[in-house]
Design a protein around this nucleic acid. Structure first.
Lengths: 220, 220
DNA sequence: TTGACGTATAAACGTCCGTTTAATACAATT
DNA sequence: AATTGTATTAAACGGACGTTTATACGTCAA
C-alpha cells in the first residue's frame, strides 16, 4: 500500500500557530509585563518555533500589538453582553447598573485587558495613545450623561469632569489594585454578590456626592 | 600639632559614592521600572564603577531595597511637615485637610515614592509586603476616624471600610494616573491652586457620599 | 518534473545583562 | 618600612535576550 503517497499532507498547524501565539503572549504579557516576558517563553508556551514571532508579527512589538488588538476586541464583545438599564429608568438605577458594569469589567477574567491596561497606564508604551481611547468610549460617555443629570441645571463642564472622575476613580481603583487585592484575598474577584454589593455602595455614595457637589460647586 | 595624627581620615568620596548610587538608582528605577533600569546606566549616572553596586549593596536587589528605604524615609519627613487640622475642628475641614495632604503626597515631587509605589502595587515585587504598610499608616488611621465620625452611630466595620475606600480611591487615582495625566498636560501636577481646588471638590463629594451612605447602608 | 512559494525548524549572531574575579591605589597600623 | 584593610578601577565571565540567517518540508502552478 502506497501509504506514504496517498496520505494527504497534514495541514500541520496552519493558522493555529498564529492564534496560539497571540493567546500565549497575552497570558505572559499580562503576567509579567512586556519587558520581562520573553519571546522564548512565549513560543514555548504556544508550542511553536522561536522564529514564529518574527515570521508572523515582524518582532516582539508586533506581537504585542496583535495581542492588544485581540484583547480589546474580546473585551468589547464581553462588555456588550452585560445588562444595561434603559435611558428612561431612574437615575439611581442607571448609575448603579453602569457602576456594576464598570466593576464587572475591571474585576472579572473575561480577557487580559484590565491587567494589560493597568500596566500600560502606569507605564505607557508607544502604543498607549492608540489603545487608551478604545477601552471606554461608550461607558465614559454614558457616565458623563448620568453625572450631568445628577448635577442638574447648575452643572458646568468642570463640575461634570470632577463628578465623572470621582465616580470613575472608585471603579478603576480595582483595576490598579487587582494584583495587590488578590494577594490579600479580597472577595471581590471571585464573588459576584460582593461585586453587586460594591456597585450599590459606590453608586449610593456617588449619588450623594453629586448632590452635595450641586449645592456647593454651582454657586460661587 | 600632630596634624597627621589627629587628622581624621578624609572621607574622600567615601560614602559619597554610596549616596550618589542610591540617588541615581531612585531616579532610574522610578523612570523605567526595576527590570528595565540597568546597573550600567545607574553607575554611569552616579559616576561610579560598575562593581560599586555589588560592593556596597550586594547586588541590584540590595540597591533597590536601599532606594526604597531611603525614599520611604524622605517621604515621611515630607508628609510630617504638611499642615494638618486639629482634632477638634469641624469634620468638613478635617476631611478637606486630609484629602489635601494625600493629594499633595501623590502629586508633588518630594520623592520618588509615589511613582515607585505605583509600580509596586500594580506589579508587586518580593519587597511589596514589607513596603506596603509603611506608606500610609498615619493617614489611613486618620481617614478611618473621620469616616467613622461622618457615618455616625450606625457605622459598621464594613461600612467604614467602604467609606474609607471610596474616599481614598479618589486620591490614589492620581498616583496611578500620574504618568498618563502628565502626558495629557493635566494642571494638577504643577499647580498648587489646582490641587487645593481638587481637594475641596473631593472632600465635598465624599462628605455628601458618606451622609448618603449613612441613611442607606445602616438600616437593612 | 520542475521551479517557486509559503511555512516550519534549527542553528547561529551580536548585544546586553548582572555578577565575579583580578588588579590597583592609598591610608592606617605594626 | 612592611603590612593590613578598605575603596576604586578594570576586565572578563556566563548566560539570556531579540533577531537573523540558513535549511528542510509540502503544496501548487507551469
Amino acid at each position: 500500500m502506497s501509504l506514504s503517497r496517498t496520505r494527504i499532507a497534514p495541514p500541520a498547524d496552519s493558522d493555529g500557530a498564529r492564534q496560539r501565539l497571540v493567546e500565549a503572549a497575552a497570558v505572559l504579557f499580562a503576567a509579567r509585563g512586556y519587558e520581562v516576558a520573553t519571546v522564548r517563553d512565549i513560543v514555548a508556551s504556544a508550542g511553536t518555533n522561536l522564529n514564529a514571532v518574527n515570521y508572523y508579527f515582524g518582532g516582539k512589538r508586533g506581537l504585542y500589538q496583535a495581542v492588544m488588538a485581540a484583547e480589546v476586541e474580546r473585551a468589547h464583545s464581553f462588555t456588550a453582553a452585560l445588562p444595561r438599564a434603559a435611558a428612561g429608568d431612574a437615575l439611581e438605577l442607571r448609575l448603579e447598573q453602569l457602576v456594576l458594569r464598570l466593576l464587572t469589567f475591571f474585576v472579572t477574567r473575561h480577557s487580559r485587558l484590565p491587567r494589560l491596561a493597568a500596566l500600560e497606564v502606569v507605564n505607557p508604551s508607544p502604543l498607549f495613545e492608540q489603545i487608551a481611547p478604545s477601552i471606554h468610549e461608550a461607558e465614559s460617555a454614558e457616565l458623563r450623561g448620568i453625572v450631568a443629570a445628577a448635577l442638574g441645571r447648575s452643572a458646568t463642564a468642570e463640575s461634570i469632569d470632577d463628578g465623572v472622575r470621582s465616580v470613575y476613580s472608585q471603579c478603576v481603583y480595582f483595576m490598579f489594585m487587582a494584583e495587590s487585592l488578590q494577594r490579600s484575598g479580597s472577595p471581590v474577584f471571585a464573588n459576584a454578590a460582593a461585586v453587586r454589593r460594591l456597585a450599590r455602595q459606590i453608586s449610593v455614595f456617588s449619588l450623594g456626592g453629586l448632590q452635595a457637589s450641586r449645592s456647593s460647586g454651582g454657586a460661587p
